[in-house]
Simulated assay, not measured.
Amino acid sequence: MNPNDLKAVCQQLISEVEKAIVGKREVIEKLLACILADGHVLFEDYPGLAKTMLAKSFARALGCQFKRIQFVPDLLPSDITGGFVYEKKVENFVLRKGPIFTNILLADEINRAPPKTQAALLEAMQERQVTLEGVTYPLESPFLVIATQNPIEYEGTYPLPEAQLDRFIARLSIGYPSKEAEKEILARRRARMKDDVDIAQIVTRERLIEMQKFVETVEVHADIQNYIVEIVEAT
């Protein structure tokens, strides 16, 4: 792979996702950059702004498995990771994997679950593995968590701890569409006569991993590295 190949594939991915997400190219580009950097993303935004559709569209275009968890106050860690259950047929305990065993995981309204449940994601996000009953199970690559939280509703929520926030590479916001974008959304919905948008697969999961590895080879000048450190120190 070379830079031109990567650029061409990225343009294809962006164009494909734009079939579902109208007028938000900058957000799509930023999310794609996070995916290529193999980092998790936190969306702070209002309900109904197509966060789920954005995540699903990328999953389809990237040929990745997608799962969604609705975080609620009574959600248990085992609801995320899974656990061992007794299987009568084999007369033994067998592992029933939870939704975290996927490629792209949408953690919807992550701050509505208590800290103990939120913590179930920490190991997976940092080390790409899940430990159950003392046994470690690696997660299939790529593994990306796209989490969401409402920026204005705090009743019945639990602030994300610093350890959790540290796992996210970026905090993004989609924002409301413009008037022209809303007209285009309505026109497209009427034309396809269904809510779901058909997104074509652009790359395979293996190709995505290859793209992520190529990004790691990009040279970063020492001056840029120093600038990054200075920004971190200043903030």
Rank of each mutant, 00 (worst) to 15 (best):
F43V: 09
Q12P: 00
E91F: 06
R68Y: 00
M211A: 12
P115T: 07
T136K: 01
A113M: 02
A170I: 08
Y86H: 08
F101E: 00
L105M: 04
P115I: 04
L13P: 04
E123G: 08
F93E: 13
T235N: 12
V90G: 10
V85L: 14
E127C: 02
R188T: 05
T235M: 11
P99M: 03
A113D: 06
K30L: 15
L132C: 06
D5A: 13
E153T: 03
V135D: 09
I35F: 13
A20I: 01
Q149I: 00
G63W: 01
L32T: 06
I209W: 02
R171T: 13
I21T: 00
G63Q: 10
F84P: 00
K30E: 14
E29G: 05
V203I: 15
G83D: 10
L105N: 03
N92A: 15
L122W: 00
F58R: 01
F84K: 11
K194V: 10
C34D: 07
I35E: 05
L32A: 04
E18F: 04
M53I: 11
A33H: 10
Q118S: 09
V27L: 12
I231C: 13
T52S: 15
K24C: 00
G23L: 11
H40D: 07
K30Y: 09
N111C: 08
A191G: 04
I209L: 14
P77R: 01
Y176A: 14
L54Q: 08
R190Y: 10
A120W: 07
E127Q: 11
R189G: 09
P114T: 07
V9F: 03
R190K: 15
D108Y: 01
T157S: 05
F168Y: 08
I152D: 10
L105H: 02
K7H: 13
D195N: 15
I199K: 00
K194P: 08
K97T: 10
G83F: 07
I185H: 05
I69M: 11
K194L: 11
L32W: 04
R60W: 04
L165Q: 12
Q11A: 13
F93N: 10
P138I: 04
L139F: 02
I21C: 02
V130M: 03
R171M: 12
G175T: 03
A200S: 15
C10M: 14
V130I: 11
K194M: 13
L165H: 10
A181S: 15
A187M: 11
L172Q: 07
E206S: 12
D195F: 12
V17G: 11
R192P: 05
T136S: 08
A8C: 08
L106R: 03
A55V: 13
L31R: 03
E109K: 01
C64S: 02
E210M: 09
A170C: 12
R205N: 09
R189Q: 15
I169V: 14
K179Q: 14
S178P: 09
Y46G: 02
L132R: 04
V9A: 07
A234Q: 14
F168W: 11
D5L: 12
R207L: 07
P138M: 01
A55N: 06
N103D: 02
V41R: 08
